[in-house]
Simulated scan of single mutants.
Amino acid sequence: MKIRVGQGYDVHRLAEGEELWLGGIQLQHTHGLVGHSDADVLIHAICDAILGAANLRDIGYHFADTDPAFKGIDSKILLKQVMELVRKEGYELSNVDATIVAERPKINPHIPAMKECMAKVMEVEANDISIKATTSEKRGFVGREEGMAVHAVALLIKA
């Protein structure tokens, strides 16, 4: 059995008038994330972690932000395609661990829904997805509520 680990990191800017999508669900907030797609920073970091573990480069390589085909795309579609890519290489997801760094809104109440949503898309158990949330203690761009960041790690297994 071969085991591989990958790390992902993503950042998106917050702006008024945008929708806030995290982990495939929409959260109600005064600001949303800005990006070429729906800017789901959690899914993007997880995609990078999974792709990295399989040595398949990164999300930008597969879904370029210069490609009009991905303008406004639902990041759940990208996540599903990432899982198809790694399964084609013979890998299966063991688990994902992600940390969302944001001052507001409160993330913890939404974690169960995010896990269920992504587990369905990824065709894994919700228990295989760990999501945590923290703040940056009012420091940096996250602390000033200019954006959000996510760190993610994925473990893949190849039989």
Rank of each mutant, 00 (worst) to 15 (best):
G17T: 12
V101R: 09
D74I: 06
I46A: 04
L155E: 14
G23Q: 00
V101P: 07
H36M: 04
H31L: 06
K120I: 01
A159F: 00
K88V: 07
G52K: 00
A98S: 11
E123C: 08
P68I: 06
D38N: 12
F70T: 14
H36A: 11
K76A: 09
I157E: 15
M122C: 13
I3R: 15
S136Y: 02
M1K: 12
V153F: 06
T66I: 10
V5W: 12
R13I: 12
E146A: 08
A54G: 15
M1R: 14
T134R: 15
F70K: 06
L14N: 10
Y91G: 07
V142C: 05
S75Q: 04
V121D: 03
R87S: 14
I43W: 05
G6L: 15
C47S: 07
F70D: 07
P68C: 01
D48I: 12
D128E: 11
E16R: 03
S94A: 00
G32V: 04
E92K: 11
D40V: 09
A152T: 10
G23W: 04
H29D: 03
T30R: 05
L85A: 10
K138F: 11
I131S: 03
I131Q: 04
G8E: 01
V96A: 02
E145L: 00
D74E: 02
V121R: 03
H151W: 10
H110N: 14
I129L: 14
I77A: 02
I50E: 00
F70G: 07
P112Y: 14
R144C: 03
A49I: 07
K158N: 11
R13M: 04
L33Y: 01
E84M: 08
A102W: 01
V121S: 01
T99Y: 01
G72V: 05
V34Q: 13
K132H: 02
G35P: 11
A126R: 08
A149K: 13
G60L: 07
M1A: 15
M122N: 11
M122Y: 09
E146P: 04
V86N: 00
V5K: 10
K138G: 11
G140Y: 08
A154Y: 09
I100T: 06
E19S: 09
V142I: 15
K158Y: 01
A49E: 00
H110G: 05
A54L: 15
Q81K: 13
T135Y: 03
G147H: 12
